[in-house]
């Protein structure tokens, strides 16, 4: 069947079967690569995208259920100031090794900072539960998120 998806600000028509996941549809139908499949069962977070602004695991969302809703992948967050700051901090804090978990981590990290201004380390670690990285031991990821959180606090404090 033909679905009309709002992905990263544009509407596109994609072919999908009723059983197809959003992850497969975005990857195969829309040729997006900034979401990866690590478990296809909702437990690793590598496929995280935003659905109407909320992070979801696209491997356990059926594509047919998102018609008319807004999907945003990491590709669609290019230019977003928090995402760009997170990318820079991930680079500087060595928060990625193989890079497979990275897009899902960035999408999740942005959401953590949206919900919790200036989170401390314990909060960041708690919020990253279920977001698996096999390579980094999470040290750089936690440090990067913390750093951007602090910088955002400072700028919002300065503006107040």
């Amino acid at each position: 069947m033909r679905l009309s998806l709002h992905v990263n600000g544009t509407t596109r028509a994609v072919e999908a079967e009723p059983r197809d996941t959003l992850a497969d549809t975005l990857r195969d139908g829309a040729a997006l690569t900034a979401l990866h499949l690590g478990c296809e069962g909702g437990s690793c977070g590598a496929c995280t995208v935003l659905l109407d602004g909320e992070p979801v695991r696209s491997c356990i969302v059926l594509a047919v259920t998102v018609e008319g809703r807004e999907v945003r992948t990491l590709e669609g967050l290019a230019g977003d100031s928090v995402t760009e700051a997170l990318k820079r901090a991930f680079h500087e804090e060595h928060a990625l090794q193989c890079g497979y978990c990275t897009p899902g981590m960035l999408v999740t990290a942005r959401d953590i900072l949206r919900r919790f201004p200036g989170p401390d380390e314990a909060m960041i670690r708690r919020e990253l539960a279920g977001q698996i990285c096999r390579c980094t031991g999470y040290m750089g990821i936690v440090a990067a998120i913390r750093r951007v959180g602090e910088a955002l606090q400072e700028t919002s404090g300065a503006g107040a």
């Binding site: 900034a34 590709e75 897009p103």
Partner: peptide, 16 residues
């Protein structure tokens, strides 16, 4: 030295 390989992964452009 910061990693030369990071840019493609941060952009979601890794080729797995």
């Amino acid at each position: 030295l910061l990693r030369k390989e990071d840019a493609r992964f941060l952009a979601g452009k890794g080729q797995f």
